[in-house]
Design a binder for these strands. Structure first.
Lengths: 135, 135
DNA sequence: GTAAACCTTGCCCCGGACGTCAACGCCAGC
DNA sequence: GCTGGCGTTGACGTCCGGGGCAAGGTTTAC
């Protein structure tokens, strides 16, 4: 299988595949004419990479999974190194979620305060009866 | 006040201040020798920028707040444009948090599945009495 | 035979928020 | 007068995951 077919079957692009090869993540055999040649095993590896990336893993973080599969294990996460990456990623996600939740709370607090300040101002200086002017 | 003092008082760097000026976010007066000259008002603006950035706002998103302050309003969020940015950011944060939570759940599920697979394998082929070999 | 569709390498491009030089000007203290 | 510590501009680097294009070779379909 050539690069275009593999890319299409995995739902990615030829550009991404060349990039993965450049990183040594998914090296390709070569046909006599120089074209990259892939097999079904490469498709499996590539799907592993894409699945992990969709879950927020960086390319380097997918490497243990890919090497685990290449070593003949049934799943990419059948190796201790992959489990460690899982654990690190979980901690990282938890940390990130927590920071975002804090930021969310700060912004929500500021937003509500600002809205109250605006409404207070409108009530004190403007037309208080406006509550009923629109149906 | 010159750039170094302002940077230090706001807890940022001179490089960031020059960058903000380049964006037109925090323009500086100039002393006769060409040095940037700032006052307490600029410190206020800069603190607004830093606070918003710490809460996850991009620099362009801080612009309405800064312009609101410069227009003479008591707070950066005393203007409708700032409130709109708050609302957009809240929606963005909610969306981001939700996506991270989903990713977290997927990773946790995979992790637990992989750990179970490992333990099952160890129990079936290895030494089952290992549960008690370490104190 | 020839045009379209594929492949190759190599190179520069993106965004966001700066970091990190280089090469120089200005000013204070001793 | 000299050193050290400020300041200036400009330009390039960083991180990450590729996108896009050019100039050429190859294969496929008609």
């Amino acid at each position: 299988m050539r690069i275009g077919e593999l890319a299409e079957r995995a739902g990615t692009t030829t550009r991404a595949l060349r990039y993965y090869e450049q990183l040594g993540l998914l090296p390709a055999r070569r046909a006599v004419n120089g074209y990259r040649a892939y097999d079904e095993g490469d498709l499996r590896l590539l799907r592993e990479i894409r699945t992990l990336r969709d879950a927020g893993f960086g390319l380097e973080e997918t490497r243990p999974f890919v090497e685990c599969l290449r070593a003949g294990h049934p799943e990419g996460d059948s190796c201790p190194a992959s489990l460690e990456v899982y654990e690190r990623k979980l901690a990282e996600l938890d940390d990130c979620i927590e920071r975002l939740r804090e930021a969310r709370a700060r912004v929500a607090g500021q937003f509500e305060r600002a809205v109250r300040a605006r409404d207070d101002l409108a009530a004190s200086e403007g037309s208080p009866q406006c509550e009923l002017t629109e149906e």
